[in-house]
């Protein structure tokens, strides 16, 4: 009989590798990691250069805009790293194979988080390099503050990704559109390209509870060099993220039980 070495880490590694194999061979999938971010950067990078030349009132325009663009993409890709990876198994009718294997739901989510980080590293490396080559923009000028800002965006993306995945499990492929669109729903209230102050009062109240809005406010504070690290923004964002990621995991866990009770897991995977 074949002997077994069935450990948690081995299973998490196995499922992560399953997706990395995919990116090794599939050009369309590889394009998903690089194509849109690069296209965004090229188009909006040149737009911001043009605008900054038209009026000299906002000398940090490029820094504001490109910094925001790269950081927003981090949030967007971390969400997609989870929900699109889940969809890959739905599309290839492989989900049942995964859920009848010894991989537990917790290990499954952990693998998706790893995948999300790997995809993010690849996308960010290309965007940061391209921004430097095309526009002489160095995002690392934000200094060590960049680390907590980026971490907060990643965790917010994870929360959205986990909830999206749970909803697709529950409502089937009809809910697939959420994987592509749900993060964009948060863009207006995240104040990515403009300060929270320009939003109407009631929208500002909503923005207060969106971790990304604190991150982008913090980024702008660093760019204009107002008083060092934006500690209060970082603490706000981190506190909200702790609450949201906990809620997302609890929602996934509860939803998984509901999906099993309703017999939907087999249907979404067929």
């Amino acid at each position: 009989m074949t002997s077994m070495r069935n450990t948690k880490s081995a299973r998490i590694f196995a499922y992560t590798v399953r997706h990395l194999y995919l990116y090794k061979r599939s050009l369309p999938r590889l394009m998903e990691v690089f194509y849109w971010p690069v296209l965004d950067l090229v188009v909006w990078g040149f737009v911001s250069i043009y605008l900054s030349r038209q009026k000299g009132e906002l000398p940090d325009f490029i820094t504001f805009f490109l910094g925001a663009l790269i950081l927003w993409d981090i949030l967007f890709r971390s969400q997609q790293g989870i929900s699109v990876s889940f969809l890959e198994d739905v599309w290839s009718r492989n989900l049942l194979n995964i859920f009848v294997s010894p991989l537990s739901p917790a290990e499954y989510i952990t693998s998706l988080l790893f995948l999300s980080i790997i995809k993010l590293i690849l996308t960010s490396a290309v965007m940061v390099t391209l921004a430097w080559l095309l526009y002489s923009f160095n995002i690392f000028l934000l200094g060590f503050t960049l680390i907590p800002l980026v971490l907060n965006l990643i965790v917010m993306g994870w929360s959205i990704g986990i909830i999206t995945t749970a909803l697709i499990m529950r409502f089937g492929q009809e809910a697939e559109v959420l994987a592509w669109g749900i993060a964009l729903l948060f863009q207006p209230v995240s104040a990515v390209f403009y300060p929270v102050g320009v939003l109407p009062g009631w929208v500002q109240t909503i923005a207060l509870f969106v971790p990304a809005s604190h991150v982008f406010e913090g980024m702008r504070e660093v760019v204009v060099g107002r008083g060092g690290a934006p500690i209060s923004n970082i603490i706000w964002a981190a506190s909200l993220n702790c609450a949201y990621i906990t809620a997302a995991i609890l929602f996934f866990w509860w939803n998984f039980k509901v999906v099993k009770r309703k017999g939907l897991l087999a249907k979404v995977g067929e």
């Binding site: 074949t2 077994m4 061979r25 890959e88 290839s92 009718r93």
Partner: peptide, 30 residues
């Protein structure tokens, strides 16, 4: 273990890669 004619495997992965992923998921030695 389980097999059904109604489910499939990731299309972009080779036969070997697919089986290797599941061998690891099940902790198969060798």
């Amino acid at each position: 273990n389980f097999s059904s004619s109604y489910i499939s495997l990731p299309f972009s992965l080779t036969v070997w890669e697919n089986l290797m992923v599941f061998a690891r998921l099940y902790g198969v030695a060798g």
